[in-house]
Protein backbone atom coordinates (compact mmCIF):
# COMPACT_ATOMS: atom_id res chain seq x y z
CA UNK A 1 0.00 0.00 0.00
CA UNK A 2 1.30 3.42 -0.99
CA UNK A 3 2.03 5.82 1.82
CA UNK A 4 0.92 8.79 -0.23
CA UNK A 5 -1.84 10.53 1.76
CA UNK A 6 -5.35 9.46 0.79
CA UNK A 7 -6.69 12.80 2.07
CA UNK A 8 -4.85 16.12 1.99
CA UNK A 9 -6.68 19.09 3.48
CA UNK A 10 -4.96 22.45 3.27
CA UNK A 11 -5.98 25.64 5.08
CA UNK A 12 -9.67 24.74 4.87
CA UNK A 13 -12.14 27.43 5.89
CA UNK A 14 -15.90 27.65 6.10
CA UNK A 15 -17.33 30.96 7.25
CA UNK A 16 -21.00 31.87 7.67
CA UNK A 17 -20.84 35.65 7.88
CA UNK A 18 -18.89 36.38 11.05
CA UNK A 19 -19.11 32.79 12.25
CA UNK A 20 -15.96 30.85 11.48
CA UNK A 21 -17.26 27.26 11.56
CA UNK A 22 -13.95 25.95 10.22
CA UNK A 23 -11.02 28.29 10.37
CA UNK A 24 -8.00 27.18 8.43
CA UNK A 25 -7.44 23.52 9.26
CA UNK A 26 -4.87 21.37 7.51
CA UNK A 27 -4.15 17.66 7.86
CA UNK A 28 -3.27 14.52 5.95
CA UNK A 29 -4.71 11.03 6.31
CA UNK A 30 -2.64 8.00 5.37
CA UNK A 31 -4.11 4.92 3.68
CA UNK A 32 -5.32 2.18 6.01
CA UNK A 33 -5.57 4.26 9.17
CA UNK A 34 -8.42 5.29 11.42
CA UNK A 35 -8.19 9.04 11.65
CA UNK A 36 -10.37 10.61 14.33
CA UNK A 37 -11.49 14.19 14.32
CA UNK A 38 -12.22 14.81 18.01
CA UNK A 39 -14.01 17.76 19.54
CA UNK A 40 -17.14 18.90 21.37
CA UNK A 41 -20.36 19.86 19.59
CA UNK A 42 -19.81 22.99 17.54
CA UNK A 43 -16.10 22.34 17.06
CA UNK A 44 -16.55 22.24 13.26
CA UNK A 45 -16.14 18.48 12.81
CA UNK A 46 -19.29 17.85 10.80
CA UNK A 47 -18.76 20.96 8.67
CA UNK A 48 -15.25 19.72 7.91
CA UNK A 49 -16.34 16.19 7.03
CA UNK A 50 -19.28 17.42 4.94
CA UNK A 51 -16.93 19.62 2.92
CA UNK A 52 -14.82 16.53 2.37
CA UNK A 53 -17.94 14.62 1.26
CA UNK A 54 -18.74 17.32 -1.30
CA UNK A 55 -21.90 18.31 0.60
CA UNK A 56 -20.71 21.81 1.51
CA UNK A 57 -18.65 24.25 -0.48
CA UNK A 58 -15.60 25.58 1.38
CA UNK A 59 -15.12 29.32 1.75
CA UNK A 60 -11.46 28.71 0.90
CA UNK A 61 -8.77 26.06 1.08
CA UNK A 62 -8.30 22.82 -0.78
CA UNK A 63 -9.32 19.21 -0.28
CA UNK A 64 -7.70 16.44 -2.24
CA UNK A 65 -9.14 12.96 -1.80
CA UNK A 66 -7.99 9.89 -3.74
CA UNK A 67 -6.18 12.24 -6.10
CA UNK A 68 -9.26 14.34 -6.92
CA UNK A 69 -9.95 17.96 -6.06
CA UNK A 70 -13.17 17.52 -4.09
CA UNK A 71 -14.36 21.09 -4.51
CA UNK A 72 -14.28 20.68 -8.29
CA UNK A 73 -14.85 17.02 -8.97
CA UNK A 74 -16.30 14.99 -6.13
CA UNK A 75 -18.39 13.03 -8.63
CA UNK A 76 -15.28 11.24 -9.92
CA UNK A 77 -14.57 9.63 -6.54
CA UNK A 78 -18.11 9.08 -5.21
CA UNK A 79 -18.01 5.39 -6.08
CA UNK A 80 -14.76 4.93 -4.09
CA UNK A 81 -16.07 6.56 -0.91
CA UNK A 82 -18.64 5.36 1.64
CA UNK A 83 -20.42 7.80 3.93
CA UNK A 84 -22.37 7.45 7.17
CA UNK A 85 -23.83 10.91 7.89
CA UNK A 86 -24.25 12.15 11.44
CA UNK A 87 -28.02 12.40 11.08
CA UNK A 88 -28.40 9.14 9.12
CA UNK A 89 -31.92 7.83 8.95
CA UNK A 90 -32.70 4.68 7.02
CA UNK A 91 -35.56 4.45 4.54
CA UNK A 92 -38.30 3.51 6.99
CA UNK A 93 -40.22 1.04 4.87
CA UNK A 94 -37.29 -0.89 3.43
CA UNK A 95 -35.89 -4.00 5.10
CA UNK A 96 -32.13 -4.19 5.56
CA UNK A 97 -31.53 -6.55 2.59
CA UNK A 98 -33.71 -4.34 0.37
CA UNK A 99 -31.87 -1.17 1.41
CA UNK A 100 -28.51 -2.84 0.76
CA UNK A 101 -29.61 -4.12 -2.64
CA UNK A 102 -30.89 -0.58 -3.45
CA UNK A 103 -27.55 1.01 -2.61
CA UNK A 104 -25.76 -1.79 -4.44
CA UNK A 105 -27.70 -0.67 -7.52
CA UNK A 106 -26.69 2.95 -6.96
CA UNK A 107 -23.03 1.92 -6.86
CA UNK A 108 -23.50 -0.21 -9.96
CA UNK A 109 -22.72 -3.36 -8.04
CA UNK A 110 -24.53 -6.52 -9.00
CA UNK A 111 -25.07 -8.13 -5.63
CA UNK A 112 -26.06 -11.73 -5.23
CA UNK A 113 -28.23 -12.77 -2.30
CA UNK A 114 -25.06 -14.12 -0.72
CA UNK A 115 -23.29 -10.75 -1.10
CA UNK A 116 -26.19 -9.05 0.66
CA UNK A 117 -26.26 -11.70 3.37
CA UNK A 118 -22.50 -11.36 3.91
CA UNK A 119 -22.77 -7.61 4.36
CA UNK A 120 -25.72 -7.96 6.74
CA UNK A 121 -23.71 -10.51 8.66
CA UNK A 122 -20.71 -8.17 8.77
CA UNK A 123 -22.77 -5.50 10.52
CA UNK A 124 -24.42 -8.09 12.76
CA UNK A 125 -27.96 -7.58 11.49
CA UNK A 126 -28.68 -11.13 10.35
CA UNK A 127 -31.37 -11.52 12.98
CA UNK A 128 -33.32 -8.47 11.74
CA UNK A 129 -33.59 -9.11 8.01
CA UNK A 130 -37.39 -9.39 8.13
CA UNK A 131 -37.93 -6.07 9.88
CA UNK A 132 -38.52 -2.82 8.07
CA UNK A 133 -35.99 -0.17 9.08
CA UNK A 134 -38.45 1.84 11.17
CA UNK A 135 -38.65 -1.09 13.60
CA UNK A 136 -34.89 -1.32 14.15
CA UNK A 137 -33.27 0.00 17.33
CA UNK A 138 -30.96 3.03 17.27
CA UNK A 139 -27.86 0.84 17.20
CA UNK A 140 -29.28 -1.39 14.49
CA UNK A 141 -30.11 1.63 12.35
CA UNK A 142 -26.53 2.91 12.69
CA UNK A 143 -25.21 -0.53 11.72
CA UNK A 144 -27.52 -0.54 8.71
CA UNK A 145 -26.13 2.90 7.85
CA UNK A 146 -22.64 1.49 8.05
CA UNK A 147 -23.66 -1.38 5.78
CA UNK A 148 -24.96 1.12 3.23
CA UNK A 149 -21.66 3.02 3.45
CA UNK A 150 -19.86 -0.26 2.75
CA UNK A 151 -22.02 -1.43 -0.14
CA UNK A 152 -19.82 0.16 -2.80
CA UNK A 153 -16.73 -1.58 -1.39
CA UNK A 154 -15.13 1.82 -0.74
CA UNK A 155 -11.47 2.49 -0.14
CA UNK A 156 -12.34 5.36 2.17
CA UNK A 157 -15.09 5.66 4.78
CA UNK A 158 -16.41 8.87 6.30
CA UNK A 159 -18.21 8.11 9.54
CA UNK A 160 -19.69 11.15 11.23
CA UNK A 161 -20.19 10.35 14.92
CA UNK A 162 -21.08 6.73 14.21
CA UNK A 163 -21.73 5.72 17.82
CA UNK A 164 -23.61 8.77 19.09
CA UNK A 165 -26.72 7.72 20.96
CA UNK A 166 -25.75 4.07 21.16
CA UNK A 167 -25.53 2.14 24.43
CA UNK A 168 -22.15 0.93 25.67
CA UNK A 169 -22.57 -2.58 24.25
CA UNK A 170 -23.64 -1.34 20.83
CA UNK A 171 -20.72 1.10 20.76
CA UNK A 172 -18.20 -1.65 21.51
CA UNK A 173 -19.78 -3.82 18.81
CA UNK A 174 -19.34 -1.04 16.29
CA UNK A 175 -15.75 -0.44 17.39
CA UNK A 176 -14.90 -4.09 16.72
CA UNK A 177 -16.48 -3.72 13.31
CA UNK A 178 -14.41 -0.63 12.48
CA UNK A 179 -11.21 -2.29 13.66
CA UNK A 180 -12.02 -5.20 11.34
CA UNK A 181 -12.48 -2.80 8.43
CA UNK A 182 -9.14 -1.18 9.15
CA UNK A 183 -7.56 -4.62 9.19
CA UNK A 184 -9.02 -5.15 5.70
CA UNK A 185 -7.09 -2.06 4.57
CA UNK A 186 -9.86 0.49 4.49
CA UNK A 187 -9.14 4.06 5.52
CA UNK A 188 -11.62 5.48 8.02
CA UNK A 189 -12.15 9.15 8.74
CA UNK A 190 -14.15 9.36 11.93
CA UNK A 191 -15.61 12.27 13.79
CA UNK A 192 -16.41 11.77 17.44
CA UNK A 193 -16.92 13.57 20.70
CA UNK A 194 -16.19 10.42 22.68
CA UNK A 195 -12.70 10.62 24.14
CA UNK A 196 -12.55 6.88 24.84
CA UNK A 197 -13.62 6.10 21.27
CA UNK A 198 -10.86 8.25 19.82
CA UNK A 199 -8.32 6.77 22.23
CA UNK A 200 -9.22 3.12 21.60
CA UNK A 201 -9.84 3.22 17.84
CA UNK A 202 -7.59 5.85 16.34
CA UNK A 203 -4.22 5.69 14.72
CA UNK A 204 -4.27 9.47 14.58
CA UNK A 205 -6.33 12.03 16.51
CA UNK A 206 -7.01 15.51 15.24
CA UNK A 207 -8.36 17.67 18.07
CA UNK A 208 -10.65 20.49 16.92
CA UNK A 209 -12.11 23.31 18.95
CA UNK A 210 -13.94 26.42 17.72
CA UNK A 211 -13.11 25.58 14.11
CA UNK A 212 -9.38 25.33 14.67
CA UNK A 213 -6.80 22.60 15.10
CA UNK A 214 -5.75 22.23 18.73
CA UNK A 215 -3.44 19.23 18.39
CA UNK A 216 -2.75 16.29 16.18
CA UNK A 217 -0.92 13.07 17.07
CA UNK A 218 -1.52 9.37 17.75
CA UNK A 219 -3.57 8.96 20.99
CA UNK A 220 -0.56 7.89 23.07
CA UNK A 221 1.46 10.75 21.65
CA UNK A 222 -1.21 13.22 22.75
CA UNK A 223 -1.31 11.62 26.20
CA UNK A 224 2.45 11.74 26.51
CA UNK A 225 2.68 15.32 25.28
CA UNK A 226 -0.35 16.81 27.00
CA UNK A 227 -1.70 14.28 29.51
CA UNK A 228 0.48 15.38 32.40
CA UNK A 229 2.35 13.03 34.73
CA UNK A 230 1.30 9.87 36.46
CA UNK A 231 -0.79 10.26 39.64
CA UNK A 232 -0.84 8.23 42.83
CA UNK A 233 -4.15 7.79 44.59
CA UNK A 234 -3.91 7.41 48.35
CA UNK A 235 -6.96 5.37 49.36
CA UNK A 236 -8.85 6.12 52.62
CA UNK A 237 -6.55 9.00 53.51
CA UNK A 238 -6.81 9.29 57.30
CA UNK A 239 -5.17 12.69 57.97
CA UNK A 240 -7.18 15.88 58.49
CA UNK A 241 -4.84 17.96 56.38
CA UNK A 242 -2.81 17.34 53.21
CA UNK A 243 -0.05 19.67 54.38
CA UNK A 244 2.49 16.89 54.90
CA UNK A 245 2.10 15.62 51.32
CA UNK A 246 2.19 19.09 49.85
CA UNK A 247 5.34 19.76 51.87
CA UNK A 248 7.00 16.97 49.89
CA UNK A 249 6.53 19.08 46.74
CA UNK A 250 3.58 17.16 45.23
CA UNK A 251 0.40 18.65 43.74
CA UNK A 252 -2.55 17.40 45.77
CA UNK A 253 -6.27 16.95 45.06
CA UNK A 254 -8.84 15.60 47.57
CA UNK A 255 -11.37 13.20 46.03
CA UNK A 256 -13.91 12.26 48.78
CA UNK A 257 -11.89 10.29 51.35
CA UNK A 258 -8.97 9.73 48.98
CA UNK A 259 -6.14 12.01 47.98
CA UNK A 260 -4.74 12.22 44.46
CA UNK A 261 -1.04 13.05 44.33
CA UNK A 262 0.03 14.48 40.97
CA UNK A 263 3.63 13.81 40.00
CA UNK A 264 5.49 16.15 37.74
CA UNK A 265 6.35 14.84 34.28
CA UNK A 266 9.41 12.61 34.35
CA UNK A 267 9.29 12.14 38.11
CA UNK A 268 10.13 8.65 39.40
CA UNK A 269 7.03 6.80 40.54
CA UNK A 270 9.05 4.38 42.66
CA UNK A 271 10.76 7.25 44.47
CA UNK A 272 7.44 9.02 45.10
CA UNK A 273 5.87 5.87 46.51
CA UNK A 274 8.89 5.31 48.78
CA UNK A 275 8.69 8.86 50.12
CA UNK A 276 4.93 8.65 50.73
CA UNK A 277 5.33 5.26 52.46
CA UNK A 278 7.97 6.53 54.81
CA UNK A 279 6.39 9.91 55.52
CA UNK A 280 4.15 8.63 58.28
CA UNK A 281 1.03 9.86 56.47
CA UNK A 282 -1.91 7.51 57.23
CA UNK A 283 -3.70 5.84 54.28
CA UNK A 284 -4.99 2.33 53.65
CA UNK A 285 -3.35 1.65 50.26
CA UNK A 286 -2.28 3.36 47.08
CA UNK A 287 -2.74 2.88 43.32
CA UNK A 288 -1.06 4.56 40.38
CA UNK A 289 -3.14 6.27 37.69
CA UNK A 290 -1.81 6.80 34.18
CA UNK A 291 -2.98 9.86 32.23
CA UNK A 292 -5.59 9.31 29.52
CA UNK A 293 -6.62 11.13 26.37
CA UNK A 294 -9.21 12.90 28.53
CA UNK A 295 -6.40 14.37 30.65
CA UNK A 296 -4.64 15.50 27.50
CA UNK A 297 -7.90 16.97 26.17
CA UNK A 298 -8.54 18.82 29.44
CA UNK A 299 -5.06 20.27 29.33
CA UNK A 300 -5.41 21.24 25.68
CA UNK A 301 -8.92 22.66 25.64
CA UNK A 302 -9.53 23.53 29.26
CA UNK A 303 -12.41 21.13 29.85
CA UNK A 304 -13.75 17.68 29.11
CA UNK A 305 -16.63 16.56 26.89
CA UNK A 306 -19.85 15.42 28.55
CA UNK A 307 -22.75 14.43 26.30
CA UNK A 308 -21.02 16.08 23.37
CA UNK A 309 -20.76 19.43 25.14
CA UNK A 310 -17.58 21.00 26.50
CA UNK A 311 -17.63 21.06 30.30
CA UNK A 312 -15.11 23.42 31.87
Amino acid sequence: MSNKPIITVTNLKKHYGDIKAVDGVSFEVSPGEIFSCLGPNGAGKTTTVEMMEGLRTPTSGSIEILGADVTQDYASIRHRVGVLPQDFQPFDRLKAPEAIAYFGGLYGRKMTKQDVADLIDAVALSHRTDSVAMKLSGGEKRRLGLALALVGEPELLFLDEPTTGLDAQARRGLWRLLEGLRDEGKTIFLTTHYLDEAEILSDDVFVMHKGKEIARAPPMGLVEQHGGGISILLLDYAEKSTDKVEAMGFGVERIRNNVKVNLTEGASVREAIRRLDTSGVQFRDLITIEPTLEDAFINLVGGTIVGGELKK
Binding site: E53, R78, V81, P85, F88, Q89, L106, G108, G152
Partner: peptide, 13 residues
Protein backbone atom coordinates in the same frame (compact mmCIF):
# COMPACT_ATOMS: atom_id res chain seq x y z
CA UNK B 1 -36.14 16.88 6.06
CA UNK B 2 -34.99 13.32 6.82
CA UNK B 3 -31.63 13.83 5.13
CA UNK B 4 -32.27 11.30 2.34
CA UNK B 5 -31.18 13.80 -0.30
CA UNK B 6 -27.95 14.38 1.61
CA UNK B 7 -27.39 10.65 1.92
CA UNK B 8 -28.04 10.07 -1.78
CA UNK B 9 -25.75 12.98 -2.69
CA UNK B 10 -22.84 10.95 -1.32
CA UNK B 11 -23.63 8.07 -3.69
CA UNK B 12 -23.09 7.96 -7.46
CA UNK B 13 -26.83 8.71 -7.99
Amino acid sequence: SRGYFKLLATTPL
